[in-house]
Structures are given as structure tokens and as C-alpha cells.
């Protein structure tokens, strides 16, 4: 009933909802993945591959681009923020540098959420999934208000959202860098307050995949010891404080993604689905759907 009320309240704010959606007989709502991460971590590649993977499974999935500086896509773009505003225009007209222009674009998007975004998101039904390909500026996810208000708004509209945080596996070569990545991901998690799935991308690019192994399901005592070795001794207590927070709240777990391996993609997708409860009642749809009931066997996952 709550969902219905929140639908109503958006109507009051002037959003025109399609009749189909407003009078949908069930209130199970669509799902969305917000794909974030530093520049060059492989967000668009992830979107492309997930899209392909889902297409081959017969699962519908749309990709919306939110990066005003993107230039080409390998996936079909359902909606594009550049229809609303383009970075080059802003840079020219407002005489801003690239970064300032991006912030301007995001603020513009924030202001136009009720018109543009609501319009783009119209017509999605239960069990539809939308992926947002986002810009690579980290501060958008840890400081800026645009994405926070977007997620709040969409959650209010009844969307179930998960944040997919992508980090380049090549930067996780030792414990200190791993912790740096975790803290980075954590600040996005605290800011956006969404279910969070962390992904290490480009695992296929690593020469020695075994270096990642200790960090996928980290042993915290070991991690703290490794930090002790690598850091100035005065940080010993800090090392242990961080490791214990990670342990107590299970804040860190990274899923490795090897883009060349369908199974690893499926595992990552499964993690995202679990985080938002996608496919809980999808078993009746088609026989071609994957079985989401069983957890994939992690032991033979791509790290061999």
C-alpha cells in the first residue's frame, strides 16, 4: 500500500504517470542498477556485457546513460542524458572547465528529475531492470547531492535500486591499496545509502590472478597484519580499527569480474539481483530464465 501512496504523491508533484503504471494491478516495482566507479574502471564495458548477457538469456534490460561526456556506446542506449544536456555545450556556453561543466550538468539533471528522468522511466513494469551508466567522478557519489537525490526520488517512485561499485582489479595489488579501495567504496555506500555490490573489474588483465585471492573474502586478522607490515608502526591501531570495522559489518566483499567469462558475469549479476531481490518470483516467467535459486559454485570462479 505504501508504494501506491508514494505513486500518488509523485502525481501530486506534477509528474505525469502513464495510466498503465498508475493503475498497474500489482505493486511489484521495477529494478535499477546504478553503475558507479572511478574513471576508466570499466563501467560502460560492464553495462555492455551485462546487456549482452541478459539478451542471450531472454531477460529484458535497458541501459540509460547518465554520463554527459560519453561519446560512443557499444550497447543500445534507451535514454541518454545528453539529450537533456551535453557537456560540450556547457563547457562552451558557461565557459567552464571539464569538471565544473560536469557538475553543472549533474545539477541540471537534479533540477530536471521530475520532468526528464520521470519521463524516461515511465512505462517500466515490475521485473524490468534498468542499468544506469554513470560518470566517473567519484565525488558525485560521495559528496555531491545529485545522485543522492536521484536515488531518493527513484526509491520514492518505488524503484528497487542497487549500487554497483566498480574498481579496477589492477589497482588492488596489496593490502594498503585494497583498504584504500574499500574506504572509497564505503564513502559512496554511506552517502547513497543503497544496497551495495562491489566489483573488481578487469580480472582478466591481471597477470597473476592469485594476488587477488586474499582480498575476495579477506581474513581480517591477516589483513591487519599485512597493513602493519606495510605502514608506519604508528598506524598500528588504525590498521586494526579499520580491519575490525570491515569484519564486524561485512562491509567489504568484492566480486571478481572477468569480462571474458560468462560464468563470472553471471555470478556478479546474481549478486546484484540478490541485493535487491530481483527474480524472487521470476521462476514462472520462462523456462529459459536462469535458476536464481542456487548460489553458483564460487570455488571454480575465474581465478584459476
Amino acid at each position: 500500500m505504501n508504494v501506491f501512496l508514494s505513486l500518488r504523491s509523485t502525481t501530486n508533484h506534477g509528474t505525469v504517470l502513464s495510466p498503465r503504471r498508475a493503475f498497474a494491478p500489482t505493486f511489484s516495482m521495477p529494478y535499477a542498477q546504478l553503475v558507479v566507479g572511478p574513471a576508466g574502471s570499466g563501467k560502460s564495458t560492464y553495462c555492455h556485457n551485462v546487456h549482452q548477457h541478459c539478451a542471450s538469456l531472454g531477460r529484458t534490460l535497458s541501459v540509460i546513460n547518465l554520463d554527459p561526456a560519453a561519446d560512443e556506446f557499444r550497447y543500445p542506449v534507451t535514454a541518454d542524458v545528453r539529450e537533456l544536456i551535453s557537456l560540450e555545450d556547457v563547457m562552451e556556453e558557461e565557459e567552464l572547465g571539464p569538471n565544473g561543466a560536469l557538475m553543472f550538468c549533474m545539477e541540471y539533471l537534479e533540477d530536471n528529475m521530475d520532468d526528464w528522468l520521470a519521463e524516461q522511466l515511465e512505462g517500466y513494469m515490475e521485473d524490468d531492470m534498468v542499468i544506469f551508466d554513470c560518470p566517473g567522478q567519484l565525488e558525485l557519489y560521495s559528496h555531491h547531492s545529485a545522485f543522492k537525490s536521484m536515488t531518493e526520488k527513484m526509491t520514492g517512485w518505488g524503484w528497487k535500486m542497487v549500487c554497483v561499485y566498480i574498481l579496477d582489479a589492477q589497482f588492488i595489488s596489496d593490502g594498503t591499496k585494497f583498504i584504500a579501495g574499500c574506504l572509497q567504496a564505503q564513502s559512496a555506500m554511506l552517502h547513497l545509502a543503497l544496497p551495495h555490490v562491489n566489483i573488481l573489474s578487469k580480472v582478466d588483465m591481471l597477470q597473476d590472478k592469485s594476488v587477488l585471492e586474499p582480498y575476495l573474502c579477506p581474513d581480517h586478522q591477516r589483513l591487519a597484519n599485512e597493513l602493519d607490515e606495510r605502514m608506519d608502526p604508528k598506524y598500528r591501531k588504525l590498521n586494526h580499527a579499520i580491519a575490525s570495522v570491515m569484519e564486524d559489518f561485512a562491509l567489504i566483499s568484492f566480486a571478481p569480474l572477468d569480462i571474458s567469462d560468462e560464468e563470472s558475469l553471471q555470478f556478479v549479476l546474481y549478486q546484484c539481483d540478490c541485493a535487491i531481490g530481483y527474480g524472487e518470483d521470476a521462476d514462472v516467467r520462462t523456462s529459459r530464465d536462469v535458476e536464481y535459486g542456487d548460489e553458483p559454485d564460487m570455488s571454480n570462479l575465474s581465478l584459476e
Binding site: 584504500a180 574506504l183 554511506l190 588504525l238
Partner: peptide, 24 residues
């Protein structure tokens, strides 16, 4: 001024710790 928002302050501090570990 931005840090007056406790959540942003928190984010900033986590960033700073992250930089500490990343650069040692």
C-alpha cells in the same frame, strides 16, 4: 563549509584515510 554536513564530512574523512593507505 561543505563539511558542515556530517555525512559529507564523514565521506571526506574516509577519503583522507583512503589516501593515507593508498600513498603510505
Amino acid at each position: 563549509p561543505q563539511c558542515q554536513n556530517p555525512q559529507i564530512f564523514m565521506s571526506n574523512m574516509l577519503q583522507a584515510v583512503s589516501v593515507l593507505y593508498r600513498s603510505r
